[in-house]
Design a protein around this nucleic acid. Sequence first.
DNA 1: CATAATCTTGCAATTTCCTGCAAAAATATG
DNA 2: CATATTTTTGCAGGAAATTGCAAGATTATG
Lengths: 248, 248
Amino acid sequence: MLKEERFDYILKKLQTDHKVLHTELSNDLQVSEDTVRRDLEVLAQNGLLIKVRGGAIPHSPNPFAFNERILLHEDDKRAIANKALSFLHNGQTIIMDGGTSTYALVKLFPPDLQLTVVTPSVPIAMQLMEHPGVDVILTGGRIFKSSQVTSGLDTIRMLEKLRADICFMGVCSLHTEVGVTGPDMDEAAVKNVMVQSANKVIALVTSDKMGTAEPYKVCNITAMDTIITDEAGLALAAPYRQLGINVI
Amino acid sequence: MLKEERFDYILKKLQTDHKVLHTELSNDLQVSEDTVRRDLEVLAQNGLLIKVRGGAIPHSPNPFAFNERILLHEDDKRAIANKALSFLHNGQTIIMDGGTSTYALVKLFPPDLQLTVVTPSVPIAMQLMEHPGVDVILTGGRIFKSSQVTSGLDTIRMLEKLRADICFMGVCSLHTEVGVTGPDMDEAAVKNVMVQSANKVIALVTSDKMGTAEPYKVCNITAMDTIITDEAGLALAAPYRQLGINVI
DNA sequence: CATAATCTTGCAATTTCCTGCAAAAATATG
DNA sequence: CATATTTTTGCAGGAAATTGCAAGATTATG
């Protein structure tokens, strides 16, 4: 039995049953549960399913869908968001980029905070509508379903007119030489305008994104004033500090 | 039974019953009440429901009116939405105004429908993001928390550039002489532009709104091509028909 | 205020997960 | 063809998560 045959079987079963269990698969495929576990690991890394305790469930096309929001292990992100909170003060105007890290941040906004938040992210806008002290401005444009942000010329034009105190950027990839990069051209263009429209840019980034790069460039790494990450003590942070960037 | 399956079950039950009880869930899912309690705890932390003594209730995205209004006249709105569906065809560009009637309509979109929908409403955009065949364009601007729509100059400018096949308007008040009116100046201005940017205007309106008026004028009643209501047979509809408006 | 229901907390039993390791299989190399 | 290298697989243990239970605190209700 080839590994690929097992993959095939697992994905088919997932489609029909809407779940798979280690125990069942181990029995069906006549391999140990450890092998099943490793198979699911691979499939999960390729975004074909979601690992959960005891087995796996299908990957929903919507990253903010009910099931999945629960599964994003948000510990790191909550830690990052907590550090970011100290930068917020009443009366500021904030650009809040899309992404799960920034989403975690707005969820932690204290109830008495008074801000104006400009964002292209629909879930962030939705979340902040509940907050009595926050004025929400949504940038217009076509919605990217995968990341749930607006994008395009209209988005860019609204951001260009703006002068914000801080931009919180949910960065995709950081690299000391390549700079800030993302997987989509339009989104990268939008992020670029965000950086230019804010007095201070703070990147929220989990440590696994540091030192990586993607096809489309957002800006140079020196455009970042502060990088907030979960592993600021690592050697990983040193090169950024040498460039004069505050890494927390 | 995976934990995630329980989550799924709880959220589904919550959607249909508008409440869940520890005792019921414990029985349905064949786990102890403590486990149910812990499940509800997790779901509550992710903002998917509100824990209350004895069980949980759905999470209302904001303390203001929108989500409470969804439940108001639910049946009437679904009836109206069903009539509206017949106007939709693949390939059209639709302006979808905010409001609970239009929200009910997009919830009924058949899965194979192919449309471009332009809307100022955040909940409608959120809903349509899950629809594979619909391109969603969100108009930018400041968010009105009470009605969850964007408003202001940016919204108007994006709508002005547009030419849509149909505008579905969630009208606040209709009156044969005063015309279409609303309670807010900015929103009225936005609605006015919507009317001008569409070839055909269809008003979705519960019968209790007909013959009433509010402070700010949107447009003349003759700008409506069709009015869809729950009580089209009433004498209420006659004066509109005399003006050449199709009342269904 | 008394009673019953519900909630919180701590704990122990069970299951599942992760890590390192070694044997077996497959592949590459001389 | 023989040998070296890599990949895959199963196993053992300790770590971590899940679950149900019990005791005491809290809240609703007549």
